[in-house]
């Protein structure tokens, strides 16, 4: 075999207009992608920038998911398969 091809950067995108603080899905009620991903690439967090406008700062209500450890993604597409809203796309 010749020298292994350098692996291109994996780009995982979540459509926040579907899943996120303004979308119809609150990731706190779904999270299927986070459960499906073996290397645990995703992180659910309070949406950056909205934390100070929350009604109750101890109980923030704006959440979204960021595919944070992109380099650990194996491109198994499990997350894409389980997402009920087709909110995830993966390219490279």
């Amino acid at each position: 075999m010749s020298k292994a091809k350098k692996k291109k950067r994996t780009k995982i995108r979540i459509d926040y207009s579907i899943c996120g603080e303004k979308g119809k899905i609150d990731p706190r009620n779904c999270g299927l992608c986070m459960r499906a991903c073996d290397p645990a690439v995703f992180i659910m967090h309070e949406t950056l920038g909205t934390e100070k406008q929350q009604k109750d700062i101890y109980d923030p209500q704006d959440w979204r998911i960021t595919p944070i450890w992109g380099s650990l993604c194996s491109r198994c597409f499990k997350c894409v398969e389980v997402c009920p809203e087709n909110a995830i796309t993966i390219t490279w």
Binding site: I43, H45, E46, L48, E51, I57, P60, T66, I68
Partner: peptide, 9 residues
């Protein structure tokens, strides 16, 4: 209060 943001900031 917002610890989950630690990797995002």
């Amino acid at each position: 209060m917002n610890f989950e943001q630690v990797y995002i900031r």
